[in-house]
C-alpha cells in the first residue's frame, strides 16, 4: 500500500487570499498573469542586447549552413528578378506602362522578399523555438522581433543588389534616395506587427502555419510586385482602387519605388498613410501578442 504507516499530516494549506497576501508582501511575481504592458515593454528594452545576440547568432547559423553563404542573399533575388523579367516583362508583357521595368520589378521582388520572409518565419517565432521558450523566461516578444531583425540583416546584401540594378538601368542618385532607409524602417516596423500576430496565431493552432504561406503568396500577386496596381485598377470603383493601392503590402512597395525611381515622384500622403499603418499594425500586433504572453510554448 502506498500510504505510509505513520505520516506527518500536511500543514493546513494557506487560502488563496493568504497566499496572495504573502506573495505580494515579498514582491513575488504571479505566473498566471501577464505583466502590465508598460513593464512588458520595459522588459523588452532591458533585453535589447539579448535581441541582438539572438538575431546575429541566427544570421550566422543561416549562412554557415550553405557553402556559398552570403552569396545566396544576392543570388536568390537576382535569379528571381531574372525569371520574373522573363515571364512578366518579355513573355506576358504586363509592364503596365512602367518605363524602367527592371528597376520597378527588382524593387518589388527584393522588398516583397523581405515581407514574405518576416511573415513566414515570424509565424514560427515561438513554435520553432520551443527549446528556449520552455527552458527560459524572457518577454516572448523578443522572438518575433529577433526574426524581423534577422530577416532584415539577411536582406541587406539584396539592398546592395537593388542599388546596383538602379544604377545599371539608368536611375540617377538624387536626394530622394536618402528616403530609402526611412521606407525600409517603416516597412520593417509594419512587418514586425504582422509577425507578432502570426506568431500568436500559429502558437494557438499549428494549422495556421499551413495557411500563412498561402496568404503570403496571394499578397504577392495583389500587391504590385510585378506590375503597378494603380494601372490595372484604373477603371474600378474608387473604393476598390483605394483598398488595393493603399493596403499596407502594396503601399510599402510604392513608397520604396517613390524613393528610388526617377519616374515616380514622392507623394507625401502615401508616406503618411504608410507611417500610420506601421504605427497601428505594430501597436496592435504587440498588444495582441502580449495578451497571450502566458500561453506561449505551453500545452
Amino acid at each position: 500500500m502506498t500510504e505510509a504507516p505513520a505520516r506527518r499530516p500536511l500543514a493546513a494549506a494557506l487560502t488563496t487570499d493568504e497566499s496572495r497576501e504573502l506573495a505580494e508582501r515579498h514582491g513575488l511575481r504571479s505566473l498566471n498573469q501577464r505583466p502590465p504592458l508598460g513593464r512588458y515593454i520595459a522588459d523588452v528594452w532591458r533585453r535589447r542586447s539579448f535581441l541582438w545576440t539572438l538575431s546575429s547568432a541566427e544570421s550566422y547559423a543561416k549562412n554557415e549552413a550553405n557553402h556559398l553563404g552570403q552569396v545566396w542573399a544576392i543570388l536568390n533575388p537576382a535569379v528571381l528578378i531574372g525569371s520574373y523579367f522573363l515571364i512578366f516583362g518579355l513573355l506576358l508583357s504586363t509592364r503596365g506602362g512602367v518605363d524602367n521595368f527592371i528597376a520597378f520589378l527588382s524593387i518589388g521582388v527584393v522588398m516583397f522578399g523581405f515581407t514574405s520572409s518576416v511573415i513566414t518565419r515570424g509565424a514560427k517565432a515561438i513554435t520553432g523555438r520551443l527549446g528556449i521558450v520552455r527552458a527560459l523566461h524572457f518577454p516572448r516578444a523578443i522572438l518575433p522581433m529577433s526574426v524581423a531583425l534577422t530577416e532584415f540583416l539577411a536582406t541587406v546584401p539584396a539592398f546592395g543588389l537593388l542599388f546596383a540594378l538602379m544604377l545599371l538601368t539608368g536611375e540617377r542618385p538624387d536626394w530622394e534616395w536618402l528616403l530609402f532607409p526611412v521606407a525600409v524602417i517603416i516597412q520593417g516596423v509594419t512587418l514586425l506587427g504582422f509577425a507578432f500576430i502570426a506568431a500568436r496565431l500559429v502558437n494557438a493552432s499549428q494549422d495556421m502555419a499551413n495557411l500563412i504561406p498561402v496568404v503570403v503568396r496571394l499578397l504577392r500577386y495583389v500587391s504590385g510586385v510585378f506590375f503597378p496596381v494603380a494601372h490595372y485598377v484604373a477603371g474600378a470603383p474608387p473604393v476598390i482602387q483605394a483598398v488595393l493601392t493603399l493596403q499596407p503590402f502594396a503601399l510599402m512597395l510604392t513608397i520604396v519605388r517613390q524613393s528610388l525611381l526617377g519616374s515616380e515622384p514622392v507623394v507625401l500622403s502615401d508616406w503618411l498613410i504608410m507611417t500610420g499603418w506601421a504605427v497601428v499594425i505594430a501597436g496592435v500586433g504587440l498588444i495582441y501578442f502580449w495578451r497571450a504572453e502566458t500561453r506561449y510554448g505551453r500545452g
Partner: peptide
C-alpha cells in the same frame, strides 16, 4: 505549463533544467 486551477507566484526568473538541455 498553465495550471488549470489555483495560483502561483515566484521570485525572479525560475530556471528549469530538464532532459532537453539544448537551447538552440
Amino acid at each position: 505549463l498553465p495550471p488549470s486551477e489555483g495560483r502561483l507566484w515566484v521570485s525572479g526568473e525560475p530556471s528549469l533544467l530538464g532532459v532537453n538541455a539544448v537551447l538552440i
